[in-house]
Design a protein around this nucleic acid. Sequence first.
RNA 1: GGUCUAGUAGCUCAGCUGGAUAGAGCAUCAGCCUUCUAAGCUGAGGGUCUCAGGUUCGAAUCCUGACUAGAUCACCA
Length: 591
Amino acid sequence: MSIVSLIQKKTIESLSVLYKQPFSEKDFQINQTKPEFEGDYTVVMFSLVKSLKLSPEVIGKLLGDHMVNNNQALFTGFNIIKGFLNLSVANEFWLGLLNKNYGDICYGKKEMNGKKVMVEYSSPNTNKPLHLGHLRNIFLGWSYAEILKANGYEVVKSCIVNDRGIHICKSMIAWQKFANGATPESAGTKGDHFVGEYYVKFNDAYKTEVAELMAAGKSKADAEKEAPIMKATQQMLLDWEDGKPEVMDLWKTMNGWVYSGFDITYNNIGADFDKVYYESNTYLLGKDIVQQGMDKKVFYQKDDSSIWIDLTADGLDEKIVQRSDGTSVYITQDIGLALQKYEQYKIDQSIYVIGNEQNYHMKVLQLICQKLGMPNADNIFHLSYGMVELTSGKMKSREGTVVDADDIVDEMIATSKQHTEELGKVQDFTAEELKELYNTIGLGAMKFYLLRVDPRKTMVFNPAESIDFHGFTGPFVQYTYARIKSILRKNEMAIDSSFPTSLFPLEKELIVIAEQYSAVLEQACTEHNPSVIANYIFNLAKTFNSFYAEHSIAKAESEDKKQLRLKLAVFTANILKSGMQLMGIAVPERM
RNA sequence: GGUCUAGUAGCUCAGCUGGAUAGAGCAUCAGCCUUCUAAGCUGAGGGUCUCAGGUUCGAAUCCUGACUAGAUCACCA
C-alpha cells in the first residue's frame, strides 16, 4: 500500500471515530507537503471544514492528535497551517521501505491481472521511408506497451502495414518509367529510401505533365485527371486488384525492398511487433459486416447503390461505408480488422496509436462498431498524439522539410560519439563497446526527447535542443546511473548492517520519491502517458545528483551512513533503469 | 461554416479529478573539480498562466464568451 493510501486510510479511521459518521477518501485530499513547511504529507481540510461546520484549527487539532496517538510507529507529529494538516512520517517507515525494496529490480511493478491488450502502432505506408513523426508514434506505442506490462497486462504489439493502394502504385509506375531496372543493391541505397525516391519522382513527373496540359489550354482539374502518368497509375491499381502477374511481381519486389529497409530501422531503434497485419490481406474485410449493418438497419443504401451510415444524431456527418461499385472503403476495412483482432486474440482492450489528425475517423470507427453491437466496441481506445513540428513550422514533404528517421537517429548517435570523445572518459573501451555506448546515448537522447512531452500535445522538434545532453534529457539520467554504478564498483555493501536513525533531508527525499514509483507507473498507464515516467525519472535523477554533491558515500560520517547511502544508490539505480526501460532506453554501466 | 484540440518565463515543457508564495530544463549572469565520473552541483534575474466575465472560502485548473493557432468534416488512405 502506498503511503498516500495509508494516510487516507488512517485519516478515514480517525475521522470516523471522532465524528461518529462514515467518511471516504473523497471527503478530503492528501498532498505532498510543500518543502517550505514542516511535514511529509498533508491532509487538506477545507472540504471537511464545510461539511463539519467547524474551524480548521479544531478539526486539525483533534484529527492530528488522534492520528499521531493511534499510529505512533507511522507518524511523529503534525502542525496546522490554515486548512492544512501537515503530518510528519517516521524515519522508521522510510528506512523500512528502503531496506525492503532497494534490491528489488521489479519494484513498483504489478502482478499479472489476466487482462489482454493489443497496442497497434507504427502502421506505415510502404511508399516512403519513416520520418520523425513515425518515431514519435513508434516510441510512444512501444513504451505504452511496456507500461501496460508493468501494470500487469498481457500485451500484443501489432502493426497494420498499408501496403496497397494508389500511393503504392505511384512509386511502382515511376520505377517502371525511370529506373532502368535499378535496385537498392545496384544503387547502394537502403530499400525504403530507394522506393521513396521513386515516389518523389512520380510527383515531379506528374507536376510536369499537369503543367504541360494546362499550358495546352486544359483546366487544372482536367489536367490533373488526364495526366498520362496518373492514368497509368490508376490502371495499375485496377490491374493489381485483378491480380495481374507482372504487377503483382513488381509490387511484391518493391514492397520487399521497403520491408528490408524498415527492418533495419526497427532493429536500430528497438521496435518490434508480435503480429503484423497487411492491408492487402485486410482490405476486403468488412463486406459481411456491411450486409449485417443493412440487416440491422444501421446502414442504408442510396439510389446509386452506395451504402452509408447517418451519424448526424451523434453530432457527426453521414459516412460512406461501401462505394457504389461495391468496393469497400478504408473505414469498412477498419471495422473488419477491429473484429478480427478481437476474434483472434480475445483482447480486453484494443489500443490504436494514431496521430490526432485521425481523431474524427477513430470516433466514427468506434461509433459504427458500437451501433453494430460488436462485442469489443467499447474497448477500442484511440491513443491520439500530436504532430511533431519544426521550429520553422510544420514538416512538409513538398518543401523537403521532412526529417528522415534514419538521418536523425544517425545524427544523434554521431553527436553522442563526439561528446563522448571530447570528454574522454572511456578511452579503454573496445571499438565494439564504444559503438554500443554511442547507440545507447544517442537513442536514449532521441527517445527521451520525444517521450518527455505529453503525447496529446503538438510538440516542437528543435534540432539544437534535441542534441543537447544536459538538463532534462536521456543522457542526464544515463549519466546519473553510470555514476552510481561507478560508486558501487568501488564500495562493498555489507550483508547486514544496522541503521542510522536520523536522515538528512536529501537522504529522506530520495526515499520519498522512490516510494512514489508505483503510483507513477499506474498514472502513466491510466493516462496513456509515458511522459509521466520521463518527468518522474528526471526528478529522481536530479535529486540523486544533489544528494551526491552534498553527501559523500565512500567517505560517509560512519559505516552505518555509508551502508545507508549505498542502499539509496542501489535503490535509485534500480528505479532509473526500470523507468528508462519502460521508455525503451538502456542505461550504460559507464559513460 | 460545423466539430475537436491547444494557448503558462526569451525558447521547450510540467502543473489542470479546484488548495499554501505557479515549477523544471535550455538560454543569460555569478560561483563550485588536491574528495565517490563537472554529460554534475549551488545561487540570481526572468510570469497580466491569451483576454473578459461567471461559479466559491479559494481558479493556471471548472463554466460561458471572445481572440489566436492547429486538426478534421472525400465514393483518399
